[in-house]
Simulated scan of single mutants.
Amino acid sequence: MLSKLLGAFHSPKRAEDSVSGGPRVSIVIISYNMAREVPRTVLSFLPPHQRHIQNEDVEIIVLENGSSVPIPNEVRSSWPDNVRYIEVEDPKPSPAYALNYGVSLARGDIVCPVIDGARMASPGLVSTALRALEYSEQAFVASIGLHLGSKLQQHAVNEGYNQQVEDELISSINWPDDGYRLFEICAPAGSSSSAWFGAIAESNAPFLRKSLYESIGGYDERFDIPGGGLVNLDFLSRLTRRSDADYFLVAGEATFHQFHGGVTTSRHVQLQEPDGETTWEKYAGQYANIRGEPYQHPTRRPTLFGSFPPEAARLAARVLEYIANERENRKK
């Protein structure tokens, strides 16, 4: 069974460059007090860490969204010319506005909005997503999310997991020498609990043509809760409901969340807010007010596209074993 699931798809042709002669893809990364994390994220989305693409294929736009501790000048000066760093004027508590602004600046016909700048990319994510997009003008490509560490960071933080522990963990695999070794030190995020083998709730590095992004209205800026609430889940939900859009999930690739004390990954979403609501109830309530219906996990399953490197295949095998055990336990 596993060997069939891990089979590769092959692209019939290379995606064309943008009409303007610019990059093939523009990656928009939102930074909010992530001076430690964003430099790793930027590095992970660039060659040579990203394989099978060239520097001219990609541009990165880093949006500093009101950080009290921005990325230091000495770090930014080390970035190549295809990385732009922009401080958002009049930044909002939610990243939605910054994402839409960043996409408006994109020179590529394909965009990848990274709502959380703490998400490092695996080495084949960009090239595989670009190949998947060749199959349809209306295609969009999602990626799963993983947490660095042995378990969900919401739980690991209660056991002493912090940035220092994570730095030592990343150092132990000699990152970035081989980015695929990140699969050795991770666990599936709650929104991707079945990894590549189920319907995911959100993608922290979706790829789609700028025209499709604009046709759905981008990220809905009415989601104005600090951190955005369910804005990222809403974005994927609206895309999955597009009957004219082909939905792919990149196989054997992922983003890896670095711990940074974020709104949702530094604590459990069922913790009580000062007004008596849990964080999730607050987020879900805003979603219902905006959409006129309760949030529901997407049921549409994507087409798995790509192949599994050995490190990702080992994680996939563990996930499939876990899913099988859960099914057996439910039968008892």
Rank of each mutant, 00 (worst) to 15 (best):
L5E: 06
L6M: 14
L6A: 10
G7S: 15
G7E: 15
G7Y: 09
S11F: 06
R14D: 09
E16Y: 09
S26E: 07
I27D: 00
S31I: 00
R36E: 01
E37R: 02
L43I: 03
L43S: 01
H49N: 08
H49R: 07
Q50V: 06
R51P: 05
H52Y: 14
I53G: 01
E56H: 14
E56R: 15
V62L: 02
N65M: 08
N73Q: 14
E74M: 07
E74T: 11
D81K: 12
P93R: 07
A96M: 06
A96I: 06
Y101W: 13
G102W: 01
S104D: 14
S104R: 12
V111A: 11
C112N: 09
P113D: 07
V114C: 10
A118T: 07
A121N: 04
A121V: 04
L125Y: 05
V126G: 01
V126W: 02
L133N: 01
E134I: 15
E137G: 15
Q138S: 14
F140D: 05
S150V: 12
L152Q: 12
L152T: 08
V157T: 13
N158F: 12
V165R: 10
F183V: 03
C186P: 02
C186I: 06
P188C: 11
A189G: 11
A189V: 06
S194R: 10
A195Y: 07
W196N: 05
E202D: 13
S203A: 11
A205Q: 04
P206G: 05
L212K: 02
L212A: 02
Y213H: 06
R222K: 11
R222H: 08
F223C: 04
G227S: 09
G228R: 00
G228F: 00
V231N: 03
N232H: 08
F235G: 04
R238P: 03
T240A: 03
S243N: 14
Y247R: 04
A251I: 01
A254Y: 04
T264F: 07
T264M: 09
L271C: 14
L271V: 15
K282F: 05
Y283H: 11
A284R: 04
N289Y: 09
H297G: 06
H297W: 15
T303Q: 13
T303I: 15
L304N: 01
R314C: 08
A316T: 04
A316S: 10
Y322Q: 13
Y322F: 13
A324P: 07
N329V: 14
K331Q: 12
